[in-house]
């Protein structure tokens, strides 16, 4: 895969915009953003998970703090009614801007150089999760150093009417650096190498889950580190507390490295080749890591305290015939690939 430069226009997101007075403490935003990622003023854009009252991960999204009192939430699904109901009792105004603001991700090693060449001077100042506003075509484009690829990259937000001119500006500036549009398949591979999870692929959101037992707690999808139970009340606090104290966390999401080079997409994971203990939700042969990688949801204690003797059953299609393979898997750390250039300061020219 060409890992040079990607503009990921295909990633259409639902966006909401909200304002809060300083110190409003709207439970869904401030309380769940981990302390170490907080910054005082402009910044940070941090992926967070917003929980509902039960055990479900109700609301996924990435909020950006546009100013001390203004936030933008980008999420895969529309959540306006839920956000409005969550605003009851707070001084928060929420508005939907899915149709009025266009989002564009510019990701890859030359992304910084392209923005610079396109004339966004000052963009070199942005550290990871920072954002700033720049002039574009009589309007303002908000650029954050964020992305969903684990690579050096930026996300740009612009009034929808200025989307085409921004596109043209970037394509012109990046022509000689091989800029091109990519689709979901490419993005999905990049995010998998970066070990990032996707709602309704690696876990089922509350809005989509029909069966109560298919919902997942943050602890069950590797996001438990974001929970700070000492910060007062937030959606799902009681459910998380109860699940932790009553040991009701039945699943764990892990990164797997699987022997061989056949992608194990949607394969069943076994313990000692016989006992079913989970399912692979995303898998690929990673050309960059040169490893056969996967994300899988396992039933505890497998993947948690028992990590030996895990096997993956892969059905490899060979000339219209399935060949069944039983491959050894080991639990490994995510991300599968860590690129120093993602966080390097200043960002590297390429």
């Amino acid at each position: 895969m060409n890992r040079h430069v990607k503009t990921d226009a295909a990633r259409t997101l639902a966006q909401s915009h909200f304002r809060t007075p300083p110190g409003c403490g709207w439970r869904n935003i401030e309380l769940l953003v981990p302390q170490r990622m907080r910054r005082a003023v402009a910044g940070p854009a941090v992926p967070i998970l917003l929980q509902a009252q039960r055990v479900d991960a109700r609301l996924e999204g990435v909020p950006s703090r546009l100013s001390p009192t203004r936030f933008r939430l980008c999420s895969q699904e529309r959540h306006l009614p839920w956000l409005l109901d969550s605003a009851i009792g707070y001084e928060v105004s929420v508005e939907e801007e899915t149709e009025t603001v266009a989002g564009l991700a510019l990701q890859g090693p030359t992304s910084f150089a392209i923005l610079r060449d396109a004339g966004f001077s000052g963009v070199e100042q942005l550290k990871v999760f920072d954002l700033a506003e720049f002039a574009h075509d009589g309007a303002t484009v908000t650029i954050s150093r964020t992305g969903f690829t684990g690579d050096l990259g930026y996300e740009l937000f612009v009034p929808a009417g200025k989307a085409l001119s921004l596109w043209d500006r970037l394509m012109a500036a990046g022509e000689l650096r091989g800029i091109r549009a990519i689709g979901y398949t490419a993005l999905n591979r990049a995010r998998l190498e970066a070990g990032l999870i996707v709602a309704n692929a690696d876990f089922t959101t509350a809005e989509h889950a029909i069966r109560a037992d298919r919902l997942r707690m943050p602890d069950e999808i590797g996001l438990g580190f974001m929970i700070d139970l000492d910060k007062g009340h937030f959606n799902g606090r009681r459910a998380i507390l109860e699940a932790r104290t009553k040991k009701k966390l039945r699943h764990v999401l892990v990164g797997l490295e699987i022997e061989g080079n056949i992608p194990a997409e949607h394969a069943i994971v076994y313990y000692k080749k016989s006992q079913e203990v989970g399912l692979v939700s995303a898998a690929m042969w990673s050309p960059m890591a040169e490893r056969n990688i996967a994300l899988a949801s396992l039933q505890r204690p497998y993947g948690d305290t028992i990590v030996d003797e895990l096997w993956v059953e892969i059905y490899a299609m060979r000339e219209l015939q399935y060949q069944k393979l039983m491959k050894k898997a080991k639990v490994v750390q995510r991300p599968f690939i860590k690129l120093d250039r993602r966080t390097a300061n200043p960002p590297a020219d390429f």
């Binding site: 403490g25 439970r27 869904n28 509902a52 009252q53 039960r54 109700r58 839920w82 109901d85 969550s86 009851i88 009792g89 707070y90 007062g232 009340h233 959606n235 799902g236 606090r237 009681r238």
Partner: peptide
Amino acid sequence: ILELVGSREVDTGFVRKVK
């Protein structure tokens, strides 16, 4: 719930039901 406790101390789903 909405006035004496305040919606900040309970989950959105519960607030929604009560409202």
